[in-house]
Measured scan of single mutants.
Amino acid sequence: KSAVKALFDYKAQREDELTFTKSAIIQNVEKQDGGWWRGDYGGKKQLWFPSNYVEEMI
């Protein structure tokens, strides 16, 4: 599983989504079709976030 870095702040709209700030590192990313991926951040595990808010880390 990979890690991504947030390009923008994102505030969860639902309880199954992540809230994060710009430059946050989201771990254990599971990529899905449809523009939403799952990952771990801030003590939350495998919640959804919009993939267009992040960049992949190499």
Rank of each mutant, 00 (worst) to 15 (best):
G43E: 09
D9V: 03
D16P: 02
G43H: 08
E17T: 03
A3Y: 13
E56P: 11
L18V: 02
W37M: 06
W36S: 04
Y41E: 03
E15M: 09
Q27G: 08
R38A: 05
E30A: 12
L7F: 06
K44S: 13
V29R: 00
W37N: 03
A6M: 03
E15H: 11
S2M: 13
L7Y: 03
W37G: 02
W48C: 06
W37L: 04
E15R: 09
L7C: 11
K22D: 05
Q46K: 08
V4C: 15
K1L: 13
V4M: 12
L18F: 02
A6Y: 03
P50Y: 04
Y41K: 01
K31M: 11
F49V: 02
M57Y: 15
V29I: 07
N52L: 10
T19A: 07
W36I: 03
Y53H: 10
A3I: 15
E17V: 03
W36E: 02
E17K: 00
I26L: 06
D9F: 05
R38V: 08
Y53P: 02
P50W: 04
R14V: 07
A6H: 02
K45D: 07
G39V: 00
E55T: 14
N52I: 11
K45F: 15
Y10K: 01
D33F: 09
K22I: 09
V29Q: 02
Y10R: 03
G43F: 05
T21V: 12
S51C: 14
K11R: 12
D16T: 10
T21D: 12
M57S: 09
Y53S: 07
Y10P: 00
V4S: 04
A3P: 09
S2A: 13
R38F: 04
K1R: 13
T21S: 13
L18I: 04
E17H: 11
Y41H: 09
Q13E: 10
L18R: 00
I26A: 01
L47A: 15
Q27F: 15
I26M: 00
K45H: 13
G35M: 10
W37D: 05
T19Q: 07
V54Y: 00
T21N: 13
E30G: 09
G43V: 07
S51R: 09
L7D: 05
K1F: 12
E56L: 09
F20E: 03
D9N: 09
I26V: 06
Q27E: 14
E30L: 15
D9S: 09
R38N: 05
M57R: 07
N52Q: 11
D33I: 10
E55W: 07
E30C: 15
A6N: 02
G42A: 11
N52E: 13
A3V: 15
P50F: 03
G39F: 02
K5H: 08
Q32S: 13
L7S: 06
R14H: 12
A3W: 13
S2H: 14
K22R: 11
A12K: 04
K11Y: 13
L7G: 04
A3C: 15
K31D: 02
G35T: 08
E55L: 08
G42F: 05
Q46I: 01
N28S: 05
W37Y: 04
G35W: 06
D9P: 10
K45I: 15
F49Y: 02
Y41N: 02
M57N: 07
I26T: 02
E15C: 13
S23D: 15
Q27H: 15
R14M: 08
F20M: 04
K31F: 09
M57G: 08
W37E: 02
F8D: 08
S23P: 02
I26Q: 03
I25V: 12
A12Y: 00
D16M: 07
M57E: 10
L47Q: 10
D40R: 00
Q13W: 06
E56A: 09
K22W: 06
G43S: 10
D9C: 09
F8K: 15
Y53I: 12
K31T: 07
V54W: 01
K1A: 13
K11I: 15
E30I: 15
T21G: 11
T21F: 13
L18M: 07
K5N: 06
K44N: 10
W37Q: 03
N28Q: 07
D16Y: 08
Q46M: 07
F8E: 09
D9Y: 06
E15D: 14
G43K: 07
S2D: 12
G34Y: 07
G42M: 10
F20V: 03
G43D: 12
Y10M: 00
W48R: 09
I25P: 00
N52A: 14
E56I: 10
Y10G: 01
K5G: 04
R14Y: 09
G42H: 07
R38S: 05
D16K: 05
W48S: 05
R38T: 07
K5D: 03
R38Y: 04
K31H: 05
A12S: 08
M57Q: 09
Q13G: 08
K1S: 14
M57L: 15
T21P: 15
G43T: 09
K22H: 08
W36M: 09
S2I: 15
W36Q: 04
Y41M: 06
W36N: 03
E56Y: 06
R14G: 10
I26H: 00
D9W: 05
E30K: 13
K45L: 14
N52D: 12
K11W: 12
Q32Y: 15
Y41P: 00
G39S: 01
G34R: 05
G43N: 11
L7K: 11
S2N: 13
E55C: 12
A3L: 12
W48P: 04
A3R: 11
F20R: 00
K31I: 10
V54F: 02
D9A: 11
I25S: 03
G35R: 08
L47D: 04
G39P: 01
Q13S: 10
A6D: 04
D40C: 04
A24N: 07
Q13P: 03
M57V: 14
V54I: 05
E56D: 13
V54R: 01
G42L: 09
D40M: 00
F49T: 01
L18A: 00
I58F: 14
W48D: 01
Y41G: 01
K22M: 10
V4D: 03
A24W: 03
I58A: 14
K22S: 10
G34V: 06
K1V: 13
S2Q: 13
A6K: 01
K5S: 07
G43W: 05
N28G: 05
S51F: 07
E17L: 00
F8M: 13
K1C: 14
E17Q: 12
D9R: 04
V4L: 05
D9K: 04
K44E: 09
A24F: 02
P50T: 02
Q13N: 10
S23M: 10
M57C: 14
S23H: 15
Q13C: 14
W36D: 02
K31V: 08
K45A: 10
E15V: 11
R14Q: 10
S51T: 07
A3M: 14
A3K: 12
A24R: 00
F49R: 01
F20H: 03
K5W: 08
E30S: 13
E17I: 01
K11P: 06
K44I: 06
N28W: 04
F49S: 00
G35Y: 08
E17P: 00
D9Q: 06
W48F: 10
A12P: 05
A24T: 08
T21Y: 12
I58T: 15
K1Y: 12
Y10S: 02
G42R: 07
W48N: 05
N28L: 04
I58Q: 13
G34H: 08
D40Q: 01
G35N: 08
F49D: 02
Q32P: 12
A3N: 13
N28Y: 06
T19Y: 04
I26F: 02
W48M: 09
A6W: 00
A6C: 07
V54T: 08
G42P: 00
G35D: 09
E56G: 06
P50H: 05
R38Q: 08
G34F: 07
G35K: 09
W48K: 10
Q13I: 10
S51K: 11
Y10L: 00
D16A: 07
R14D: 08
K22E: 09
D16I: 10
E55P: 00
A24S: 13
V29T: 04
K45S: 12
N28H: 07
K31A: 05
S23R: 07
E55D: 08
L47H: 14
N52P: 06
K22T: 10
W36H: 04
G42W: 05
G39Q: 00
F49I: 01
